[in-house]
Design a protein around this nucleic acid. Structure first.
Ligand code: MN
Ligand code: MN
Ligand code: ZN
Ligand code: ZN
Lengths: 150, 150
DNA sequence: GTTTTTATTGAGATAAAGTCTCAATTAAGA
DNA sequence: TCTTAATTGAGACTTTATCTCAATAAAAAC
């Protein structure tokens, strides 16, 4: 049984919550995908397999997965929200290409460290963070149209 | 005449766009406020003064201001989107308190520098970025309920 | 200053994203 | 197996955002 699943079941038990097939399906689907998925994509796909799945359950579960640190929300350049699992429970951040939409995942100890110092200075207790860099990936940088900000 | 306004008019001219009173009102309002404002707040307030203002214009203008780097979108812990001007054209990032909603603005040369190196390594051309740290501010850290992630 | 051109505007329709309610269901412990 | 309480899903509803198109107004041309 994979780690995510184990951690999830654990969390549910701790919180006095119940496990359900829907919840596990959603977690598994997210884990299988290499892409970032929108709630709607997750809903449509899983709904095909189980026509009784409800949209609300998807949103509820994504929040739950967020709460226990198994899923992360990523805001794309167009403002759309998508999700991914935290691979191996490891935190990472993103560079998002405003041209092709590609997401590059990165981990930067230097950034994380600087951030930690910073927070300490402000007496701020960090729970989690999101670091999104928008721009052009190597491929798209050669030539292309203008970006869309904010 | 303030810098923001000058830059804005410049940008419009460069792009062959027209300046309008609505656009300037929105920019000015954003500039006057010390808080982060949601599109709806901006709309409701400015609408009081000019009952003919349309909601679409607010959204359109916010995108425009984003495009030219004069406004920044900030995603709050509850997922809500708000805007602020880039004070003096200067970039900054945020620590957001999941308890009281307070936003602490910071600038970290160390983080910015680390980020730059990182991007270079990936051949990624950075256009802008967003760095949001969620947690508890000094005040709220003393005691409080549990956070809401993702 | 007047005319011409063209971007912009706003009402309202529509779409997209997310939440809520509540009766029915189901997981988990006794 | 029985009991209890969390969960589910349909669909209503809310919120957020975009679109359409006729009317308007800014800037350029004259
Ligand atoms: Mn990070
Ligand atoms: Mn920064
Ligand atoms: Zn790209
Ligand atoms: Zn606080």
């Amino acid at each position: 049984m994979n780690d995510h699943l184990k951690a999830f079941r654990n969390y549910l038990k701790e919180q006095g919550l119940k496990n359900t097939s829907q919840r596990e399906e959603i977690l598994a689907f997210l884990g299988r995908s290499s892409r970032h998925l929108s709630p709607e994509e997750i809903f449509r796909e899983l709904r095909r397999r189980d026509p009784r799945l409800g949209r609300a359950t998807v949103f509820r579960t994504l929040r739950l997965l967020g709460d226990c640190g198994l899923a992360t929300r990523v805001t794309f350049p167009d403002g759309k929200q998508k999700f991914e699992t935290r691979l191996g429970g490891h935190h990472h951040d993103h560079m998002l290409c405003v041209h092709c939409g590609r997401a590059i995942e990165f981990v930067s100890p230097a950034v994380e460290e600087a951030q930690k110092r910073l927070a300490r200075r402000y007496g701020f207790k960090v729970l989690w963070h999101r670091h999104e860099i928008f721009g052009r990936c190597r491929r798209c940088e050669t030539a292309g149209p203008s970006p869309r900000r904010s």
